[in-house]
Simulated scan of single mutants.
Amino acid sequence: MYVAVKGGERAIDNAHAFLAEERRGDPGVAELSVPQIREQLRLAVNRVMAEGSLYDPDLAALAIKQARGDLIEAVFLIRAYRTTLPRFAGSVPVDTAAMAVLRRVSATFKDLPGGQVLGPTFDYTHRLLDFKLAAEGAVEAAPTAPADPARVPHVMAMLDRDGLIEAEPVSDAVPPDLTREPLALPACRALRLQALTRGDEGFVLSLAYSTQRGYGRTHAFVGELRIGTVAVEVEVPELGFAVEIGEIELTECETVNQFKGSKTEPAQFTRGYGLVLGQSERKAIAMSLVDRSLRWRELGEDFVGAPAQDEEFVLAHCDNIQATGFLEHIKLPHYVDFQAELELVRQLRAEAFARQEAAE
């Protein structure tokens, strides 16, 4: 038994060394630096920050390098590191209406106060391989953004002003923190949104797509999609007011969905909402569609059996770290379990053969 344990330790050490060698790749090729990953693979960094629930581009870039580009493994590393950090305070709610907008579009109104801002987007590219990138040539500088961008009002405020969309419920209750407390069902909307914002992008995207194909009630328009930086403020008891401690980049999406009404209430559109760390508009849009689908009960709608309407199905399976852990644990040693089942199958087969022989 001692020899087996020592042999296992040696094999694991060798696997670690092999992993480090594979991570480095060809020594003749320059090694990727963390700043390179942070600056040139921004969308991957943003996804790791969002699903890892930790806004730190440098740590996210380091995790991507350590994980050899496996973003789910990188998210795992970030979440594990996050558990070691002390919590000094909670910030006040960020004001996305005061966002320094990098990108802001609406599919519902052409002419907006503040204008449509296309920003950095793949929407208008041709989706053809650009071999100039392989040549590593210089990049033409983009137009300079204004140093002090104006405050841009939310599109939803225009509909809200005329009573055309449901009022956003306001509550002074402190929402539960999914990063510190286990998920409890049924979940309030604040908890559902937390689960979705750190859920796997591919899973949330697939659920959102399913709602658009009829498996849910989210015939939606993108009221507004905005990406930009917002100030993070913390209230200091000794001062009696909030102090800005930094800025973070966010992606926010608000969707306008099919309307509701009754004999006593005039028709109004309904809302879907998504908010994600970093630039991640696909995730924010998908999140807003799934959020709207999960609201069927509070809006008095029928449950049609769609996966995106099933709160337990969505929230229990959207977390890629939990999914990965449960999936990948089956590749670890299960010798004792398998031997027990193997012995049971052999016994059942022997009994079946004995009965067959007796019948003959």
Rank of each mutant, 00 (worst) to 15 (best):
R104L: 12
E168T: 15
Y55R: 00
D123N: 15
R10S: 10
G25F: 06
A4S: 12
A190L: 03
G272R: 05
R161P: 01
Q258S: 08
S262V: 08
R82G: 05
P186S: 10
T83F: 13
G278P: 02
A359E: 08
R282P: 02
P175K: 04
A242H: 02
L112F: 01
V230Y: 00
Q279W: 00
V75M: 12
L344I: 09
M49S: 08
Y209E: 09
L159K: 01
L239N: 07
T324S: 11
R82M: 13
G261S: 15
E312M: 12
A107C: 07
V94A: 01
V155Y: 01
R151E: 13
T96Y: 14
R23C: 13
M156N: 07
E360R: 05
T96M: 08
G214S: 07
V155T: 15
R161Q: 12
P93C: 02
Q279T: 14
T144G: 14
P307R: 12
Q194P: 13
Q339Y: 07
Q212I: 15
N46C: 07
A100V: 04
R82S: 09
E247Y: 00
F109D: 05
R295T: 06
V345E: 09
R226A: 10
V204G: 01
Q279R: 10
V304C: 15
D13P: 06
A284C: 11
I72T: 10
E201K: 02
G115P: 03
Q36L: 04
A15F: 14
R68M: 08
A316S: 05
D95S: 04
V336W: 11
V48S: 05
T108E: 13
E252C: 07
E328L: 11
A231D: 05
E244V: 05
A44P: 00
Q116C: 05
T108D: 14
D111I: 12
L128Q: 15
K260I: 08
K65L: 05
P186Y: 00
C318P: 15
V230K: 01
F122Y: 03
F131C: 11
D162G: 02
R82N: 13
T255P: 05
E136T: 10
R198Y: 14
I285H: 00
V75D: 04
D148L: 03
E166W: 02
G202Y: 05
P237V: 08
L315P: 05
A63S: 11
L43C: 02
A107Q: 07
F303S: 13
A286G: 11
V45G: 03
T84K: 11
L183S: 03
Q258F: 01
V152K: 10
A354R: 08
R87P: 09
S106C: 06
V234I: 15
W296E: 04
A354S: 09
L225T: 06
R24K: 12
A286E: 01
Q40A: 14
G90C: 12
M287P: 00
I72S: 09
A157I: 00
V105E: 11
D58C: 02
